[in-house]
Simulated scan of single mutants.
Amino acid sequence: MNIMRVRDYNQMSEKATEFLVNRINSLENPVLGLATGSTTEGLYQRLIEKYSQGEISFKHVTTFNLDEYVGLEQSDPKSYYYFMNERLFRHVDISMDRVHIPNGAASDLKKECEAYENAIAQAGGVDVQVLGIGANGHIGFNEPGTPFSSKTDVVDLDKSTIQANARFFNSIEEVPTQAVSMGIETIMNSKEILLVVSGDTKADAMAKLLEGEISEDFPASILNKHDSVTVIVDEAALAGS
């Protein structure tokens, strides 16, 4: 695990952007695994800037998002499909045929999960998976107790995750209680992982990750067993380490 310590959120976003720009430009047909949430907003904004400056193109990029809420249509402003379209996709030259986000409103969610796994396999697997970490150690929406052998599936969200995400909704009652999420094994099958971590609310989780003890009670701990993980983490998130 390569730990890159940075000053703050802005520097974390800059370094993460440099990392992805390098991969996009060096791979013939890069397959990127993408994450949503406030931690990645600065990264996506900078990727748009790099595209506007002619430093990268997304024409040859394929993307797979980690997760999506169950029950939200793609047009719902709270959906991750909407988030990704507004924060990145509609501002760059990516073909929407190459964009993959789980459909949380699918009539058959089991079939949707199987199709998502198949699509990743058909694309040759994920080259670089971008991850954040939850305060309880979740990656994607794989909550504590999720088997490390899990594949893309419908998952129940932990109360702490629902509370943490309530800030994006009008009330906590509006937060979906389930999501479609890439499984832990799916994530670990990525050739390379980029974990971005910022803020004092993630300090305890970061300290636990760096301890190195691997347990399904702390899903992110499995990253210690991956051959190629880069962690870009700011000073506030390292306060407990």
Rank of each mutant, 00 (worst) to 15 (best):
G104V: 02
F148S: 11
L109N: 08
P219N: 08
S198Q: 06
G183Y: 09
D200I: 13
Q122I: 03
N142C: 14
D200S: 12
I222A: 07
V126K: 09
N170R: 08
C113Y: 05
V128Y: 08
D153A: 05
K208W: 06
V154A: 14
G104L: 03
G125C: 10
T152E: 15
D97G: 06
L194V: 01
L223K: 07
V155T: 04
F168V: 04
S107M: 00
F148E: 06
E143H: 11
A203P: 03
S150V: 02
T201R: 11
N189W: 11
D156N: 15
G124L: 06
Y116K: 01
P144N: 00
L223G: 11
A179W: 13
D127G: 10
N165W: 04
Q129T: 02
Q163G: 14
R98P: 09
V128Q: 04
T152N: 15
R90K: 14
E211I: 03
K111V: 09
E117N: 14
A164H: 13
D108N: 03
T146A: 15
V175M: 06
M96C: 07
S190L: 08
M188N: 10
E112N: 14
L131T: 02
K202T: 02
P144C: 00
G132T: 03
Y116C: 00
I133F: 12
M96P: 11
I94Y: 05
A166S: 13
V180L: 08
E112Y: 13
R98G: 13
T177C: 00
I214T: 06
K151H: 15
N103L: 02
L209I: 09
Q129F: 03
A115C: 07
E192Y: 14
